[in-house]
Design a protein around this nucleic acid. Sequence first.
DNA 1: CCGTAGTCTTGAACACGTTCAAACACCTAC
DNA 2: GTAGGTGTTTGAACGTGTTCAAGACTACGG
Lengths: 204, 204
Amino acid sequence: MRLFRRDGFDRTTMRAVAKEAGVSVGNAYYYFSSKEHLIQAFYDGIQVEHAERADAVLERETSLEARLRGVLEAWLDVAAPNHEFAAQFFKNAADPASPLSPFSEESTPAREASIELYRRVVDGSEAKMTPALRAELPELLWLLQMGFVLFWVHDASPGQTRTRTLVAQATPLVDRLVRLGRLPVVRGVIDDLMGVVRTIRSTA
Amino acid sequence: MRLFRRDGFDRTTMRAVAKEAGVSVGNAYYYFSSKEHLIQAFYDGIQVEHAERADAVLERETSLEARLRGVLEAWLDVAAPNHEFAAQFFKNAADPASPLSPFSEESTPAREASIELYRRVVDGSEAKMTPALRAELPELLWLLQMGFVLFWVHDASPGQTRTRTLVAQATPLVDRLVRLGRLPVVRGVIDDLMGVVRTIRSTA
DNA sequence: CCGTAGTCTTGAACACGTTCAAACACCTAC
DNA sequence: GTAGGTGTTTGAACGTGTTCAAGACTACGG
């Protein structure tokens, strides 16, 4: 990880990693089946640290907006030091065939833990909504986070301020949309949306 | 392209491509600066063929739903024969640093042409909406298409029927959402959404 | 203490994308 | 027709991720 952060993912060779670790190249492959698998540890680390910070937010905040925004900003805080490096290996994570893809079979535990976090964001808030929406909203919020990550990876602004602006702008909108969902006229549309979410999930 | 389709992107070597073309490896690099650049042609081809089929749809249909659905299904029709191959090089397109990324500087012409197509989808329809929404909806629909492409790439069902189901389910929803936008209560939310879209665009 | 089976470790070798100095072809000017 | 310049072509060579046959180490039963 030290080398990856210093030189970037692509410019760090497996030979350098092996040397730094004091083992042979072949031995590195005995424990990590590919260069990609080396960053699984990084992946997990982000998730653990994010969960911790998110916990602090969820204990503090009660409104849906503040809870969502706090959790997203926690992610940005945790991920910030790795922005450059993350952008470099993002392409591997986007590969449908890669185990690192957030939609992959291998990522199921991490994905479900992440959705579970958003379930707590929703359930612990004082926001009122239909049971159907309450059931699916966590997955929608997780998808939203994936969108933010995509944006963040492409964000070249210093300190990724643009992503922070986007989050600050988008979270009140989510809150308003959820409130809107209580209107009788909107109910039908929400039901259809839930249907779409179910279709998406049944494929993964 | 013949070799790519037959053996897949990764298993096709530049040496094989050069041999098939009857030139040396170095010469291949004289005309295409990387293996990735070879698929730019494929990329362009899809776009051209999609534009043609979309034209036919737009001449025929008048409702927003039918126009949108027709255009999206046209894309699926055009892309279908290349599904396996496309999934293999999708990771390159997802790389923020790659010129093939739909968000990249180099893709600007193709991206704008695509957004322009969705402007025609909107403007040629009989759907009524606020000027602000009418201005931004094309970009939103393009983003939606990117989402469908992401889904399609991960779609392992035979003939990508799941993606087709999703499109069939999602397009009426878009239509309903646009209709909903005319309600006074919803106006404010739409305005906020437009603000988010503008933030997203100003980064790209 | 020896043998053996299982686990770890090694670095040379492989295949690939990419680069580059050299060679070649073609054209224009005189 | 020759000299020189510009654009094209070549394949060997480089650096990379990955593999693999061979060796070294460890544990344990006799």
